[in-house]
């Protein structure tokens, strides 16, 4: 019996990409079955190309780890026309060679690691083989890319951390974690914008809020954005002001 590879596996030959019918109002452009930065870059590159010249009748496109869902109104845009258009775009180049977006926004987000902001830090230290004081530095040592938003409003999935971060989620869903929690597992970081129940390990928290439905720009982090975390003190967290932050940072 065949088994799909685990979440972190890098298929030697990703693809080929394929189109799938997703209900009577959707076409799914599937670039792979797993999360892999190469597959995700293909999704985001394809999405950007489609968005640059969006056919009338497309309602929205939804990028994820491994696919792009194109939602459309089949009474305004004939299925065959959209299918042909997507096929042509797929064939236009090798999407698996897509580099991260050149003009991507680069965020530096302050994080308090450990203690009550990151109650699972000790266990994560055990699983990574790092000392507790090294976990934050290792987590913050590389820029990560927003692979997709999902699960709850504004929640960002970021990848991809080094191999030592390859461990499973908890076996049980914990009680609610607050918005801004920095959650890790399977070489990914999850940044929720609302309080959520979760099975991911909570190693820190940022005072930055990516989603505010009442703000002029309700969603700040978007797929393809780059995020680097910066360890800060509780005092910096306490004095964080989102408006000042947004004025002073130029992602």
């Amino acid at each position: 019996m065949n088994h799909t590879p685990p979440d972190n596996a890098s298929p030697a030959q990703p693809g080929p990409a394929r189109l799938l019918i997703a209900g009577d109002m959707g076409i799914l452009v599937e670039f792979g079955e797993v999360y892999d930065p190469i597959i995700n870059a293909a999704v985001l590159g394809f999405d950007a190309a489609l968005q640059a010249d969006l056919p009338a009748g497309v309602i929205e496109t939804v990028p994820s780890f491994r696919s792009l869902l194109v939602r459309f109104d089949p009474l305004k845009l004939a299925f065959d026309r959209l299918w042909d258009r997507l096929e042509t775009l797929l064939a236009a180049r090798d999407w698996y060679q897509t580099p991260p977006p050149q003009n991507r926004r680069k965020w530096v987000l302050p994080v308090v690691y450990g203690d009550q902001r990151g109650p699972d830090l000790a266990q994560v230290a055990d699983m990574t083989g790092l000392r507790q004081d090294q976990v934050a530095d290792n987590h913050a040592s590389q820029p990560l890319l927003v692979a997709m938003l999902g699960f709850s409003p504004g929640l960002a999935y970021l990848g991809q951390l080094p191999e030592i971060w390859q461990f499973s989620r908890k076996t049980e869903i914990s009680a609610q974690v607050p918005s801004g929690s920095v959650l890790v597992a399977v070489r990914q970081t999850v940044l929720p914008s609302t309080a959520i129940p979760t099975g991911w390990w909570q190693i820190g928290q940022t005072p930055f809020l990516s989603f505010n439905p009442r703000a002029k720009t309700p969603f700040l982090l978007a797929p393809g954005d780059e995020v680097r975390f910066e360890p800060v003190s509780e005092a910096v967290f306490a004095s964080f002001d989102q408006d000042t932050f947004l004025r002073e940072s130029t992602p």
């Binding site: 685990p6 979440d7 799914l28 797993v34 939804v62 491994r66 869902l69 999902g150 709850s152």
Partner: peptide, 29 residues
């Protein structure tokens, strides 16, 4: 063990216990 992607309204998903769920207006995205 497939990675997550977008859910369409009316998708019928099969969870580990083999019970189908139809996902509607307030579904997870």
């Amino acid at each position: 063990s497939i990675a997550s992607d977008a859910i369409s309204p009316g998708d019928i998903q099969i969870t580990g216990d083999g019970l189908p769920a139809v996902l509607l207006a307030d579904r997870g995205p």
